[in-house]
Design a binder for these strands. Sequence first.
DNA 1: TAGCGTTTCTACAATGTAGAAATGATAGTG
DNA 2: CACTATCATTTCTACATTGTAGAAACGCTA
Lengths: 113, 113
Amino acid sequence: MSNDSDFLPLGVLQEQILVAVLRTREDAYGMNVRREIERVTDRSLAIGAVYATLDRLEEKGLLLSNRYTVDGTSRRMFEVTAEGARALADTRAMRERLWSGVDMRRLMKLAGG
Amino acid sequence: MSNDSDFLPLGVLQEQILVAVLRTREDAYGMNVRREIERVTDRSLAIGAVYATLDRLEEKGLLLSNRYTVDGTSRRMFEVTAEGARALADTRAMRERLWSGVDMRRLMKLAGG
DNA sequence: TAGCGTTTCTACAATGTAGAAATGATAGTG
DNA sequence: CACTATCATTTCTACATTGTAGAAACGCTA
């Protein structure tokens, strides 16, 4: 009934990165997250964009990171926090509600498909 | 197989506004689009935010607008173009691919639900 | 010392956000 | 009639956050 929860939707890249961290599980470090997003979305992404967003998500407490050394190379491994998981689920739920009122047939026709 | 299509995902608010224009159909003018988004997403949204985004979407050709006078008040009515519909469909499809690899049970558990 | 994989840094562009000002119509009021 | 109040709408201005790129730095290992 009421208006105005305190929830703010995640940005597009923020959501992609959070999801990519989930998808890559125990291999969630910067370069790999980037590869995963490029693979799934079929577009290239500068490595700086990835780290800037990872940093911002960590600042907000939606991700956390630890350093490990694997095969002599140091890696910063990320994982999604409980708060991050909630933000992700909320973002998804909100979008689902919005899209639920859309006639997909009409959309596709409009798109000229 | 190839990497790098020319597609860029829509911003979060851009997508919300495009969807709200579809949902409100023949009543898609600024104030009403705002009401629709506030209603469905349960958060308040400044009117300036709405018009700034409507303008940017029109500049890119994803929306178009015409002025009508209804009950003596002038309204700028928006509609989604074919290109807008494609951008919307592409954005949705890309996100679906990304999310398809996520174990929702694990996500919900992580969120502490 | 050259190269590889990784992360950090710096700078800028695009998107999101807010609220006050402007606009134009209508309705009441002296 | 002139006046001003008000309502719904749109436009304007300014700033914060997010997205983007690529070069530089770092620490191995060959």
